[in-house]
Structures are given as C-alpha cells and as structure tokens.
Amino acid sequence: MRQEVQELVRLYQDNLFAAAFNVCKNAEDAEDVVQDTFIRYYTIKKEFDSAEHVRAWLFRVAINRAKNVNHTFWRRNRLSLEDYMETLTFETEESEDLFEAVMKLPEKYRIVIHLFYYEDYKVSEIADILKLSESNVKVRLSRGRSVLRETIERSHASRDCLSIKHCHAEQDSLLNKQRHAEQDSSWNLKEE
C-alpha cells in the first residue's frame, strides 16, 4: 500500500520534525531532514504493509538522516539551542525544564526516550525502528530516565539555592519541600 504524500505531511510533519530535532538539536537541520524524508518517500519504489509500517519507516528515515546531519559537523550560521528555545512557547515552567533536561541527554538516550514518551511506541517497535535489540532499547530507556531524573533534580536544587538567597530562608525551605514532594510524585519517569 502507498499513502499520498500530502496526507503524510499533514499527519506526520510536526512529529518527524520533533524526532529529527531531538537528534540534531537544530531547527533548520530538522526542517531539512523532514523535507528530505518526504522526498525519500516520494521517490522510493516501496510497498508498505500498513499505515503503521509507513509511519515507522518515516521515523526511521528521518532519524537516520538526522544522525547523518549530526555526523557531518557542517555548520551554517545556526541559531543556538538556547536562542531557539527562547522562540518556543512552553505551557509551563516545568515543561521548559523538562525540554531542556531532555536536550542535555546523550543522543542515544534522547531518541529512545522521545519515541517512547512522545510517539507512544513500544520497546519492540523502537527496537525495530532503530535497528537495536529490545534489551538494548530497555537499557537506553532506563539509563536515559535515570540521567533525566538526576538532571531535573540538580536543576531544581540549583534553583532552590538561588531562591533562598532572595527570600526568607525558612519560608522558602518549607515551600521547596512542598514543591519537591509534588514534583517527585509527578515526574518519576516510571515506565507506564
């Protein structure tokens, strides 16, 4: 089976962009990767088993393309990640912290985490897309979560130190304890 490119663009453009961005951490490169992925689909003479097969193939191509971009080291006048993040609108401060923490993860953990948490792929499906063993995906997922948890905790601890300098220490301490308790329960990164 084949799907119309128009339909695929409508369905997956943003998702492929997010996956590519997750690998190459640069919006311009990620846009190129998305365009290139659709061109690849348009030109390849390949029959697919199902819509899900097409989706997985698109992600695989986009991720591989994004990895190639990473390996070229070719730099244009790029917007830094920090500058690009300033152009994004996050719903909450917590979202921004999480986004930043994910971007600090090593690439091999980042993409596995993204496919699992954003695209709702199962471990076996991620293994298929990335051509890894399931156990390898599980290890990356687990280590990625662990690093992510540490990064978020460090970020909170650092922010707490700053706020204590500016506010009444006792009151802050109490508030921080409450906040930590809330955050610990909400972002524990357990496999769902």
Binding site: F17, L88, T89, E91, E94, S95, F99, H114, Y118
Partner: peptide
C-alpha cells in the same frame, strides 16, 4: 506537553 512546543 513539553515537546508540543515544537512545530515545523
């Protein structure tokens, strides 16, 4: 929610 900020 965090990654919904990204749009192509």
């Amino acid at each position: 929610q965090a990654f919904s900020a990204l749009h192509s």
